[in-house]
Simulated scan of single mutants.
Amino acid sequence: MTSAQRDVATPGAGTAGRRYRLGVLDGDGIGPEIVPAAMRVVDAALRAAGAPGVAWVPLPFGRAAIDEFGTPVPDVTLTTLAELDGWVLGPHDSASYPEPHRSRLTPGGAIRRHFDLFANIRPARAFEGARAIVAGTDLVVVRENTEGFYADRNTRAGTGEFMPTADVAIAHGIVTRPGVARVAHTAFDLARRRRNRVTIVHKANVLRLTSGLFRDVCREVAEDYPDVAVDDYHIDAMTVHLLRRADEFDVIVTENMFGDILSDLTAEIAGSLGIAGSLNASHERAMAQAAHGAAPDIAGRGIANPAAVMLSGAMLLDWLGARHGDDPLRRAAHLAVAGVERTICDGTATPDLGGMAGTGEFADAVVAVISRLH
């Protein structure tokens, strides 16, 4: 496997000056409030970086798509996404969907599966003013996104859960050598761009075959990266280490379910799930998606924190910049992150971070900061 095949943001020939086409899927709950706020920040960062603006392509998704097309992810959405450079996905509230949609694969999961977005990259960085539990936290959880115990992702057809009788439920977890190897390479490549340390999280002391295979394949991949330090922890011990010394970790690679749980934990350690950006990526495509949900209890009140989806949008810009050798795009990504960070540091924050700013007010402040950074 070549380095180009290993890296989810495969560098390509320089294409600075290109205008990218990005899909927009607002989603449910607070999605129609926070996704447009993130679009404003992306546009402002591109202007400040001297990069061409992106062409936004709105697409039907979620409950609105059910009402219009009879499905939360219409065929036209999947077909159009395949033609785009990337997209921003808002949260979905599938628990509120009418049957049979409520019991089916979630719309986000359907898109991840369709495009084989195998790496879920979730940074956790403590911003000044964000009330971090462990100051100085700056790590990334790299989560394998297609296998493990998650029934909606670990088989080509059907699911990994079944009930032979009404009183017995069974789930099978899938771990494959190719699946682990590709996400491990993603983690080690990322570590080389950070602080050269990878921590493998597993439960091989109990799940000797499945979790043991995950650990062992990660260790095998580590041999290709002699400059990167490697250690490993059991999942239960890792939760304790993170609570006490999250600031000492760099890149954490783990399987699907453990990664989902750990990334929520590390987001709160860094300050709030509201600042938890996330990118789902393959070698060819990437989807920006905040780690949090649709928060229907606060939808329409104008108080939702858009920082996570703003940071997710910045991750998408950086991924595209790396893939296409587009330095202005990567500069725009840096400006977007700096804009969010400095806005929070300056005391403008939404209620979840202890502030009083609304969604729009926070977006205004971030755009203003980006213009000053330029």
Rank of each mutant, 00 (worst) to 15 (best):
A363C: 07
P226W: 15
A44W: 00
A126V: 04
R208A: 13
Q289V: 02
N205E: 14
E147D: 08
A308Y: 02
A281V: 13
R6C: 13
R331L: 08
T266W: 04
G325F: 03
C218L: 02
A157M: 14
M39C: 13
V251C: 06
A288G: 01
A9N: 14
M310K: 05
A135M: 07
P32R: 11
A290N: 02
A237G: 09
L207P: 12
M257A: 13
T350E: 07
T210C: 09
A267S: 13
G274Y: 03
A132F: 03
A270C: 05
T343A: 06
M39D: 07
A246N: 10
H202D: 10
T176R: 14
V134L: 08
R21E: 06
A51Y: 05
L320N: 02
F69S: 13
F188K: 04
G31M: 11
E341S: 12
A110L: 12
G358S: 07
L320S: 01
G212S: 05
T80M: 11
D326A: 05
A304T: 01
H202L: 05
A281L: 10
F118Q: 03
A338H: 01
E248I: 00
T254A: 11
F162M: 13
R47Q: 15
D297E: 15
P52I: 02
R143F: 06
D67M: 02
R153K: 14
G259I: 03
G259A: 09
I170A: 12
G17H: 09
V253P: 05
Y150W: 08
M39I: 14
D231E: 14
D227K: 15
H114Y: 10
D26R: 14
L373W: 05
V73N: 01
L117I: 07
L59W: 07
S103V: 12
A304Q: 02
V88R: 05
Y233L: 03
E33N: 02
G339P: 12
R194H: 15
A229H: 15
W56E: 12
R153S: 06
T10R: 13
T71I: 14
G325C: 04
P11R: 09
I275F: 04
G62Y: 05
A308M: 01
M315G: 03
E144M: 04
E33A: 03
V251H: 06
Y233S: 10
R153W: 02
L279D: 02
A288R: 01
A336S: 13
A204I: 08
T106F: 13
R285A: 12
R21K: 13
A314T: 08
Q5L: 10
I269T: 08
H101D: 09
L311R: 00
S263K: 01
D318P: 10
T254P: 10
A16Q: 08
G259N: 04
D297Y: 12
G173M: 03
L207I: 14
L311P: 06
T79P: 02
